[in-house]
Structures are given as structure tokens and as C-alpha cells.
Design a binder for these strands. Sequence first.
RNA 1: GGCGCUAUCGUCUAGCCUGGUCCAGGACGCCGCCCUCUCACGGCGGAAACAGGAGUUCAAAUCUCCUUAGCGCUACCA
Length: 521
Amino acid sequence: MSQKPEVRTRIAPSPTGDPHIGTAYMLLFNYAFAKSQRGKVVLRIEDTDQARCTPESETAILKSLGWLGIQWDEGPDVGGPAGPYRQSERTDLYRSHCQILMDQGHAYRCFCTPEELAARRQERREQKQSTGYDGFCAELPSETVQANLDEAKPFVIRMRTPKSSECLLQDMLRGEIAIPWENVDDQVLLKSDGFPTYHLANVVDDHLMSITHIFRGEEWISSAPKHKLLYQYFGWQMPQLCHLPLLRNPDKSKLSKRKNPTSILYYRQAGFLPEALVNYLGLMGYTLPDEREMFTLQEMVETFDLKRIRLGGPIFDVQKLTWLNGRYIREKHSVDQLLARLTEWFLNDETWKKILPLIQPRAEKLTEILPRPAFFFADMVEYSPENLVPKSYKFQAETLPADLDQEPDPGLMTARLLRIVQWEMEKIRSWKAEALQQCFVNVAEKEGLKLRDVVKPFFLAISGSPTSTPLFESMAILGSDMTRRRIQHALDKLAETGHVISKKKEKALQEHYQKTYGPNI
RNA sequence: GGCGCUAUCGUCUAGCCUGGUCCAGGACGCCGCCCUCUCACGGCGGAAACAGGAGUUCAAAUCUCCUUAGCGCUACCA
């Protein structure tokens, strides 16, 4: 009798931004399952989107997942026999596999431009038809293809999908799922820049890396038929699928950074312990057989049972996470251990060397040194929201910003500024004091205000005090997650005191913003 | 709009597969009391849920169907 193959799972983050808490959630379940079967976990970087992926993001993901203490067995940082583990280093593989599909007639070139696609999609949307690819280039005569090729027209490669019947998928948790083929369009496999899409890359890699089980978010269910088809085209065995529920915002939508802090790094900075965060994530959609709420990663692995996964999307409740974190601090640490945790967190010389240069020029007694920078070590800072709003704003320019027809109420103006800066900050690639300064100078100029007036509410929002260490340096030290968090908090506080940007005004503001600042990111 | 997934206290969940032991158990949060030099911790107690409707059955939170709602997907993003 043949031996059962080793269980291999994978986590495949895309380095397009902050390391997301959902990635940690998926890693946890991939890990728990693999280890409960004495298997291995592979970490693979899915950086096929040249426009959005950055090396900074990859570093942050590796660092933050490492911080959580969930150790993968193979990956770009630790190596392994199935490498390279970065998709951008495997492009030849995808191209050659794509060629196989071309040769077999399972894939074809598509010369439609993004504009043409968008226009036809729009048309079909208006006719209330499905908006997937319409197969325009599926049966192009070879002369046309050759002509386009001779003209060096850019093209993508699409897979052929059946037009009738349905695709039967087997999900480890949900059983059989049937999806009609007419709802599956001819997905792009190879983009015009020569990079693969997720669909091609993940199938090729999962096979080549001998992945046996895929634990991923349920958002992937609807594209699973494409994957199954690719496995069939290649003649490979498809890994077992297990779609996990999605973490949700309090309003039940998919967890997103607009509504919740989603960056793992934020939770670290806000004072959560990795083992508490992992423990809490384990509580989401899952219970140990004895229903205990406090457990280690090891205990979760030892008792792991697929049957105990619930399919309803759990709401990520920071309050309960906070309670659990408190138990870890109180019950699992001696004073010495706690001190060590504090040091490995941020309370160490390295941090002080960044902060002290900002305090020193303003200090007259040593006793003044500790209270000022306390906000660096805080999650939220406290202040009265009315202090965020100055008595008036003095416009320097002749004309008001386009979304305003009259001199605005200062409360609204403050909210406006916070919003605009929020949007502008999204564009900052390298989170440094200079870049932040430039961001604010730019906003002041475009809004027709003095820099000092723009900056004023931010001092309070960031530090909780109108007089503080220099704003841009402080924000730089605080980091992007925490800075954004505090600005959002200020916006929320303003809203509580009645300074809400109405839907209508928000729309006008966005128009003004895009016209004067360029498109949102 | 189309397709798919999901559905127990406000939230995380137990129970569902293998109907009766469930006028539904635990936890967070909330409220009250106790402990106490304050606060917190801790202890005790309380309010709080089987989405709706049909069916199967002696019996349904548990099985079946329909409805409703929520979410997801519907890109040369993953």
C-alpha cells in the first residue's frame, strides 16, 4: 500500500500594502491543519502585480508574520526545496506552462485593449447582462492574429472555459458546490506585461510545490472553477479546497482598513501581544473541543479538528481581543517577564534615541522628559474634540477651494483637512518626516491656507496636546499605521460633536480633491 | 442584475452530523451586588438569541423545502 503523501499547505500573501490581519488568520489555519497532520507550511510571495507590489511591503509582511510566532517551513526567507518562493522569480515557469495550454488550444491571445473591454463591459452592464469577458477574441482567424502580431499589438492570453453545464467543486467544509460554467468567463492567464495572473500562478505553483490542501478565504470560491479547469488542462491532481469564512468589520462587511485597523503592525504597536492576537484569531470561527478560550498555538495544533470550524463570517471584535490580551499580561507574566516584553516592544534605547532629539531642545528639567512623549507609547490619545476646531480659518488665496461655495464652518473645514490629508498620506511611499512635510505644505498651498493653520488640529490628533514635539518627525516615529489611526479617531470625534461631512459634501470634496490633487489611491 | 456562500444573545460561540437530556450552555461587552485605601483584577447575580414560514415526526435549534437578510465574486488585483 502506498504511503499517504505529506500534507503541505501554503500561505500566499501579496505584498501590495500593509500586512493584513486576514493574512495572519489564513496562516494560522493553514498552520494548524498542516501541523496537526505532521505536515509543512509554505510561504509564497505573490508579487505578480507589478504596479502595486513593493519590496517594503514584502519585508513588512515577513516581519509581521514572524512577529506572530507562527513559523512556516519554506519561504523566500528560509529557503526550501521547491523554491524560488517569490512569483516574480518564477515567470519563466508560468510562460512555459501557458505555452502548453496554447499548444493544446486551451488558451488564446486576446488583443482587446483595456478601454475596449471597459466600454463593452459598461454596455453589457446597462443591458443587465453579465459583465465577464465576452469572448471577442476567442475565435479570431489565424490571419487576424498574425496581422495583430505583425503590428506588435499588445495582447494577453486567456483560458478557454466551457459555455454550458456546471462545475462541481468539492469543499472540505461545505461539501459539493455547483457553479454554472456560463458564469465563468475566459480569465486572463498571462497579462500583457508578461506576468501571470493569480489564477495561473497559483495553480502552477501549488502543483510544483506539491501543495495538498488549500485553506483560503471564501472570496475565492467563485474563481475555483477556473483553477479546477487549469488542473484538468495540465492533467494534474487538484489540492483539496477549504474555504474559510472572511473576517468582518462591525458592520459585517469584509474586514477593511477604512473601517478598522487591519495592519498586523498596528496591533503590535497598539500594545497587543502576538500570542494573544494569535489566540484571538483562533477563536474566530473555531472552538477547541473543550471550549476553552485561552490556548497556545501548540494546543490549537494538538486538538485541531476541521469539524469545529464554523462557516459564518466572524466580526473582529477589538474589545474581546483586548480582554484576552489583558489576561495574557496579568496571568502569564512575572514583573521581570513583563519588563522584558516592554523592552522588546518599543520601550528601549532605540526608540529613545529617536525621541530624545525632539525633546532635548525643549527641556529644562529631566522631569519634563517623560510626560511629553507619552503619546508615542499610547494607542489612542485623549482630548476634547472641540479643541480640534480653531475659531476660524484665514484663507490666503483669492478663491476658495472648488467644493466650497462660501467660507466654511471651521468644524467642517477641520474635518475636510483631516480627510484630505488622509487621502494624501495614502500616496506616501516612504514614511519619512520630509515626505510628510511635503504632504502638508502641498495641502496648505492647494487649500489656500497657512501651513500653521493646517497643522494645528493634527498636533492634537497625534499627540493629544496642542504643544508637542515637531509634528512631522513625530508622525515619522509613530509610523503610518498609528498616525492614520489617530487621524481617523479625530475624524470620528469630530463626527460625534456634529461636524460630519455629509454624503453630498463628501462627494463634492472628493471631486475637488481629484481635480486638484490627482486621483485617490 | 447574475452566480455562490452563510444564518443561535449586540459580539465570539456550544449544541446541529447521530432529532427528545435545551422554556438553549459558556465568554466579551452592559447592568447590579460583594471584596477593597482609589482604580483595576477577582467573586456572585441579572437583562440578552434558535431570521420567518411550510413540511417530516409522537417530538425539531437540530432533518427537508421555500422566503428573507447579510456577505462575497462578477479586473490585464490578489
